[in-house]
Design a binder for these strands. Structure first.
Lengths: 341, 341
DNA sequence: ACTTTAAATGTAAACCTTTACATTCATCCA
DNA sequence: TGGATGAATGTAAAGGTTTACATTTAAAGT
């Protein structure tokens, strides 16, 4: 039988209202100093815990922020989500808010989250979701303040946070250009990936600014897949054996290229230079020399969490933030690019 | 203004009790088929979500299982916890239970969890905790069914799950012995690590069974640290340049050894054979050839979650499970051990 | 001394469900 | 026909907080 506020009140010789006031920071000032001390002693003595369900019910708030990620078996092994969780968790630490991970199958967001079992949260951080979903349709149904990471949608009440991938692509291009590379190829992701399109666009714009062209046949789509990247590499050197550098739009694909290099007894950067994207620790730990464009996922998650927090603490009296924010990326130079020609 | 059960009841022309019965699987049978259909239509039409706080309050249950892990900034980057989260998450999927991650500073377990903010859960999975804590003291205060992973305590009402590390150590020894290795060294963790003691014990017992001895100066403690393992390797080959194999009690430390090998222009397994422990993907991805003893952390977490689930569903009418369970480990053979002699 | 003001505490409603118990109504059996 | 049975639904209490509003008490101002 769990001890309730009534027992404490009885023992302290006061009413439950006073106990409640003594427990909550914003009302603590109302209670007389010695009463407060007496109550605090009892609270620790009986290790009393206010019933969260009752509190939540009364306050119509769960003090919980949901983090929605697409569900797949190995979700927790993906470093992208590690950064997200880590950033959210650290930002929420000490704020009085918890986070709850909602790893949902595609199609379940609405059914599962809001209807079927009715998990409830005060705010939502959604990441990499629209690949599976009409973002607009889903977001319009969500009633709590929402931050979307790495996806975008127009005319919807939510905050959007992403990386500045156009600049990222440009950085990769600049890095290769200033080291003398002129014959290059790009391995990109699937067509639907906005991020990859931006990366390639950035690369191309820099290239164009130098008076060079990046033709369509120098850009190969490898669907984010390791093995397709390996095949793409074969394709690239077959078409142009003189190619000196490859820009890969994700480190996963860069990893495929590097592995294939080893198989072909080629060395990076001796025989071919490579720039990756994401600064993915899983790949970097295997190829510690890979230069890559770092995406501040951790900071994005921090920003998402603090944005929601701020909004919730502002008593909801202003309408929820709109707009999008692009955080700067940066190139981490290691040793996979050789200075040439 | 969120829609409540009253609105639905009004629209359906029935009482709230009937709505509630229609919503809950175990009472659904009581309501007449056409009433049920009418109600269901309204539920979907208004995307009604029962208020979880009210439900939890009434049922005195949160349908949430807490996963307690020691907090540190990079908690989410540790593959050990990835396996835990993944195993728990997958087991709970579809059970109606959620999990909540409680990453707590050492010292906070009781203060934070049960007193200060009063998170509440129906059950608890605690992992790698006793390093910081008197397990007994903490467990006695916890009132919900608890499973402890990778730690043990006598005479406490909880279930304990771990890996069979004595066998693991034995496997490592057998692997080296049957490939001809006789001059070996062991790099172990700090003294307080029960797991490491067991691993060494297992190794030693196999070695003894072959009539060989493993003296104290062949076993070096490197505190789980990469750089200490590197130093230990120097120490080992200085003392006995003829050593042919090293058993490292964690892959982290094996990683240190392998890195030091590279620095010294030695090759594994050409010049030295290494067996690791944990099958830690972070290390394996960097040294894909490392043979290592795999610990079924994922399965341990599954077992923990399903144990609690089972107990909770059994209506709490039997006392909570006691006892400990050791899951079998297995050696994953790769290419870091050479056949010799 | 009497009124005002402020500080401290108390009272009771509200938050939204679930469920034990009560009620209604139709059916069936003697 | 009358009473028992069972199915479907309703009524109302309970669960543990927070908080608007009411009350008490003491201090201050006139």
């Amino acid at each position: 039988m769990k001890i309730t506020i009534f027992e404490i009140a009885k023992k302290a010789g006061v009413s439950i209202a006073t106990i409640s006031r003594a427990m909550n920071p914003h009302t603590r000032g109302m209670v007389a100093p010695d009463t407060l001390k007496r109550i605090n002693n009892l609270l620790t003595k009986y290790t009393y815990t206010p019933n969260l369900a009752a509190r939540n019910l009364r306050q119509a708030s769960t003090r919980t922020i949901g983090v929605v990620v697409p569900f797949y078996r190995d979700i927790f092994y993906n470093s992208y989500y590690m950064h997200i969780l880590s950033g959210v968790s650290n930002t929420l630490e000490g704020s009085g808010y918890q986070f709850k991970l909602l790893a949902l199958d595609q199609g379940q967001l609405w059914d599962h989250y809001d209807f079927r079992s009715g998990e409830q949260v005060d705010g939502l951080i959604v990441s990499l979701w629209f690949r599976f979903f009409s973002g607009k349709e889903v977001l319009e149904k969500i009633k709590v303040p929402t931050v979307v990471i790495d996806d975008f949608e127009k005319d919807v009440k939510a905050m959007f946070i992403g990386g500045d991938h156009v600049s990222g692509g440009r950085m990769a291009a600049e890095h290769l250009y200033t080291r003398g590379h002129r014959r290059v190829a790009v391995i990109t992701g699937p067509d639907w990936s906005r991020d990859c399109r931006q990366r390639v666009d950035g690369f191309r714009s820099y290239w164009a600014a130098q008076g060079l062209s990046l033709d369509q046949d120098q850009v190969i789509a490898a669907d984010f897949l390791h093995h397709k990247a390996k095949a793409s590499f074969d394709q690239i050197i077959k078409k142009d054996p003189e190619v000196t550098a490859i820009f890969c739009c994700t480190d996963i694909m860069a990893g495929g290229v590097l592995e294939r290099c080893q198989e072909l007894n080629m060395a990076c950067p001796r025989d071919i230079s490579v720039v990756g994207y994401d600064d993915d620790m899983k790949i970097i730990s295997r190829f510690p020399y890979l230069s890559s464009v770092h995406v501040p996922v951790y900071e994005m998650a921090q920003k998402a969490a603090s944005g929601i927090l701020e909004h919730l603490k502002s008593k909801r009296n202003k309408k929820f933030f709109n707009g999008t924010e692009f955080l700067p990326v940066r190139l981490v130079e290691r040793q996979s690019v050789k200075t040439t020609g």
